[in-house]
Structures are given as C-alpha cells and as structure tokens.
Amino acid sequence: MKSETVNGATFETWTVDEVEAGMESGKIILIDVRTPQEYMFEHIHGALLMPMAGFDAGALPGQSDKQILLHCGSGVRSEKVSRAAMDAGITRIGHMEGGFGAWKAAKKPYIGVNMGTGAPQRME
C-alpha cells in the first residue's frame, strides 16, 4: 500500500489484493462511491454504497475497529471523495487503486446480474 500525509491526515492507496485480504480478515469497511445503478448492476460482495453525489464524510462509520476504504469504477472518484473526506476532518482514509475495473481485471469475485433471470449472482 502507498501512503501519504496531507495536512496531518493519512491517505492510503491499496491494491486489489490488499483490499481483498483486508475484507477477508475483517480489517476494513469498503465503501462504493459509484451510482446506485452501477452498484445494482455489479458490486464487490460486502461493499457498502455511499454515492459520490450525496457523499457526507460526517455520515461515515467510526474507524475504531475497521479502516474505511473507498472505491469507484476506476479510482478517480474514490480518490476525489477520499481527499474531500480528509478536508472534512477524517484523519485516515484510503481507496482502492484502479477501482472496480482493476478488481474485475484481477479476476476477483463480485456480485453481478444474471442476464437470463435478472437475479444477482456471484461472478468469478
């Protein structure tokens, strides 16, 4: 993971492998900042949704037990929202490098829509 300090806050950039390990160990909370439509079509199992359009840093859960990491489609929106959260007083936050596109490129499992039935299913 890459880390930088910005005005006393720590901003981390995690790889998809680090995010997967963090989720499996229960050490992180992954928050998806994409649109509800993007999330409904496909998302990482266990990721919470807090779209960038209505993002409120004050509504983020505490980080006493788990660290907050954000992700989007490519990493651009999640980095922007992470930096806005730091501007709002969050002292430690991170995002997933490359976003959901990198997750899929790395062949990580996710929840997608079965186009035949319209039902969500695990995609490998």
Results as ranks from 00 to 15, higher is better:
L30N: 02
L30D: 02
I31K: 05
I31V: 15
D32Q: 04
V33Y: 02
V33H: 05
V33M: 08
T35W: 01
P36R: 10
E38V: 05
Y39K: 08
F41I: 00
F41H: 04
F41V: 02
E42H: 00
H43P: 00
I44Y: 00
H45N: 09
A47V: 00
A47E: 01
L49F: 04
L49R: 03
L49E: 06
M52W: 05
M52K: 08
M52E: 11
D56P: 11
A57M: 06
G58L: 09
A59V: 09
L60K: 06
P61Y: 05
G62H: 14
D65R: 12
K66M: 13
Q67H: 08
I68H: 03
L69N: 05
L70C: 02
L70D: 01
G73L: 09
G73S: 06
G73E: 02
G73H: 08
S74C: 02
G75S: 10
V76A: 07
R77T: 05
S78I: 07
S78P: 06
S78C: 09
E79R: 14
K80I: 12
K80N: 09
V81Y: 00
V81H: 04
S82W: 07
R83N: 13
R83V: 12
A84P: 04
A85S: 11
D87K: 14
D87R: 15
A88H: 11
A88L: 11
A88S: 15
G89C: 12
T91H: 11
R92E: 14
R92M: 14
R92T: 12
R92H: 15
R92I: 09
R92N: 15
G94K: 12
M96A: 14
M96G: 13
M96W: 13
E97V: 07
F100G: 07
F100Y: 13
G101N: 14
G101S: 14
A102D: 10
A102H: 12
